[in-house]
Design a protein around this nucleic acid. Structure first.
Lengths: 230, 230
DNA sequence: GCATATTTGTCCGTATGTATA
DNA sequence: CTATACATACGGACAAATATG
């Protein structure tokens, strides 16, 4: 069963400058637009991404679009079925387990004792949390999820490793596909806001070991709740 | 400064079946050929991979070739410079440090206590080691390196996680680029053969903790030797 | 089950913009 | 600064596979 989405309305972008401020390539911009739509849930799992429809909607050639598809395929956001086209990826319980196994490996490891957890380094964590709290108080459910993602990206960034940053970014993008399976993503993320702040507080007072354990508990809880939704 | 390689001779493949046994796509086969050449060192770092030259040498269109490039780019083997083309990636000391940070995180974590280290599961490790020893005794230096890689891929596979498998595969492919910096890659890998077997022996008798420590020592040693070569 | 229409996979030619000698 | 080489992007073509009636 494939999902069909009315294409013209969804892709109302890219018709902009092109020649003026062509900082990035066309392929990059097309991939970025599709990535956003998939992550937002506008293009839910199993949606067929027809070349002709999207290509004409975005005003790009098939070749260009196919390169963007290839890129998203490597990021795990779409799957390529031979002679059938590309579809927004659907993740299963196996994937949730695998993704959280990786998270439990990477995120706690980023909370090293020796790294001086200065105000400076912890600032991104603080910013993500306050953004999440504000979004929650204003009822912007989607933004709560985004802020939560930013918090965990910031945790991974403490490892000070470009490859871990990239790994975490791709991992969280995949997780977005999972969150669409829970009924109220906003409420799901909101319930973890205070736990994020607790972890931050622990880090601020240098209780790294404690923070690591709290993070592990957080991850196991989230995994269980997601698995229950499957 | 970019390296130039005479193209026609290097790419004497792919002219085979094409329509007969088109099991994998053209893109896959092209990527595989380029990956091999890069890993073997035939295409050293900073080599420019011109679309026209390689495309005509392999007999594929530029579109197909570009998709193969994108694949290799995601694996970190080539870098894409906007409006300049793709080049074989050159890694620096920073990258060696980053890559080994990831290895120290992933590989020991794959050696879990609870996982039953049955004969079955440990067989890939044993096979990789004997292959390495045989290659060493027959003076096939390059194959020693390949076998060593296989050993560590097999270690990562003990984690039983598709994403860790993929991560490890990409990580080891990147490391190939590093090994070309040492003068005698074969001798480098040979010196670690007996340490691999020691680790296997520890696992066979259930001394997981000990094996993990030996693996960590192994990785730190290798990192130091590589950094010294830079 | 069959015939037709649609869509993808692959390739080519070309025009335009960009970087380098 | 000019010229050259090259990557980017487009449109069209055709075979093969798939979907549709």
């Amino acid at each position: 069963m494939t999902v069909e989405v009315e294409t013209p309305a969804v892709f109302a972008t890219l018709a902009q400058d092109r020649s003026l401020l062509a900082r990035s390539s066309t392929v990059e911009r097309v991939a970025e637009i599709l990535r956003e739509r998939i992550i937002e849930g506008v293009l839910p799992p199993d949606t067929r991404l027809a070349e002709d429809a999207i290509g004409s909607a975005l005003g790009v050639s098939r070749n260009t679009l196919r390169e963007a598809f290839r890129q998203l395929s490597h990021e795990g956001l779409v799957v390529h079925k031979h002679n059938r086209g590309v579809f927004v990826r659907r993740l299963f319980a196996d994937d949730v387990i695998d993704l959280y196994r990786l998270r439990r490996l990477i995120e706690p490891a980023a909370l090293t004792e020796d790294a001086q957890m200065s105000e400076e380094r912890l600032h991104p964590l603080r910013a993500a949390i306050t953004a999440g709290e504000q979004a929650a108080s204003e009822g912007r459910g989607g933004d709560v999820g985004t802020a939560n993602m930013r918090f965990h990206q910031a945790i991974a960034a403490l490892a000070d490793s470009p490859r871990i940053d990239l790994l975490m970014r791709r991992l969280l993008a995949e997780l977005r596909l999972v969150f669409h399976a829970v009924e109220h993503p906003g409420a799901f993320h909101e319930s973890y806001l205070h736990r994020n702040r607790e972890i931050l507080t622990m880090l601020e007072r240098g209780a790294t070991r404690e923070a690591r354990q709290a993070l592990l508990n957080y991850l196991s809880d989230a995994e269980q709740r997601l698995l229950a939704a499957y």
